[in-house]
């Protein structure tokens, strides 16, 4: 079964299959090489990159919750220069689209990141994180305000005119469709939907929060219904391709996102269920389609009967 997908538009992004690994849950990709053939994946999104190395938040930074987890890693990363120089050459980018997830606190820094990555042949697309709820300064503001979200999109668009530009939306908003439209109008090629939901967990015995940062981002199966709702609303609001994510833990989950209109999907927290999860998902997708009597993803895409 042909699973290939194109995120169509001015700068199309071709994928062998719709399975993309989500930022922050798949390291830089190399960590998972022992567990499967990276080039069998649709694409990988690397851990969020910032201009300068960031040491992230204090520990504990992660907490397991029922059917999910909270994280307040605080975007620890080695910085974009280190990534480009040392890690990107170790990835099979000739055969696997590598998507760089970028994070900054000012549109100017976003633009600078865009410019650095625009010059890298090994980068297939940029994913702009306008929605990180973990970092105290800024971040969250971009994703919650249509004008700020559009400003960041424009800044990166201008700095990296040659790259496919995916903007990753936050679910922590009252009207996600409005943000989606603003970002699409500002020149995004596609949208990724959703990032983590703001949440917290407490320990009743010690009376302490279970994250040092108190508040963190919820991910995993627990958020799937919210994610599906967001993807559905966004797909109805814009005409650019939408990549759905949030709680995907099986091939059938992935098909649900495609059914509500997603062109492709990302898997995040499920990569922690076992490191070979994403590779298996690629193998399981055709079987799940067959079970439903579906012969192509196109047949399923956006075919929700309401």
């Amino acid at each position: 079964m042909d699973l290939s997908v194109t995120l169509a538009g001015e700068r199309p992004l071709h994928l062998k299959n719709p399975v993309i690994t989500a930022s922050g849950t798949f390291g830089y990709g190399v960590e998972f090489a022992p567990y499967g053939d990276l080039t069998s994946l649709g694409a990988i999104v690397v851990k969020g990159l910032s201009l300068k190395p960031r040491s992230g938040n204090p520990t504990p930074r992660i907490a397991e919750t029922t059917s999910g987890m909270l994280n307040a890693v605080g975007l620890q990363n080695d910085g974009v220069e280190n990534f480009v120089r040392h890690t990107l050459p170790r990835l099979p980018w000739q055969e696997l689209p590598v998507i760089a997830n970028i994070y900054a606190t000012e549109p100017q820094d976003f633009a600078e990141l865009g410019a650095i990555l625009a010059a890298e042949e090994g980068i297939a697309a940029l994913e702009v994180n306008i929605s990180c709820p973990n970092v105290k300064q800024g971040g969250i503001l971009f994703g919650q305000d249509p004008r700020l979200a559009a400003a960041v999109t424009k800044a990166v668009r201008k700095a990296a005119p040659n790259k496919h530009l995916m903007v990753k939306l936050s679910p922590n908003v009252t009207d996600i469709a409005a943000i989606a439209r603003a970002v699409a109008d500002a020149g995004a090629d596609s949208l990724a939907c959703i990032n983590t939901l703001s949440g917290m967990a407490v320990d009743v015995r010690s009376r302490r929060p279970r994250l040092a940062n108190v508040i963190g981002g919820l991910s995993g199966p627990a958020i799937k219904p919210v994610a599906l709702r967001c993807v559905w609303q966004v797909c109805n609001a814009v005409s650019i391709p939408v990549v759905g994510l949030g709680g995907i833990a099986s091939a059938e989950d992935a098909l649900e996102f495609i059914l509500v209109g997603a062109s492709a999907v990302q898997v995040g927290t499920a990569n922690f269920f076992r490191p070979d999860f994403a590779f298996d998902l690629v193998r399981e997708l055709p079987k799940a389609c067959e079970k439903l009597g579906v012969h192509s993803l196109e047949e399923l895409r956006g075919s929700l009967r309401v």
Binding site: G24, T25, F26, G27, E31, F32, Y35, K47, G56, T59, P60, R61, I62, E64, M69, N71, V73, Q76, N271, F272, P275
Partner: peptide, 14 residues
């Protein structure tokens, strides 16, 4: 330390 992935990806066990 508490771990989620065991493979260096989640940065939770640092």
């Amino acid at each position: 330390n508490k771990m989620a992935c065991g493979v260096g990806a989640c940065l939770g066990c640092v």
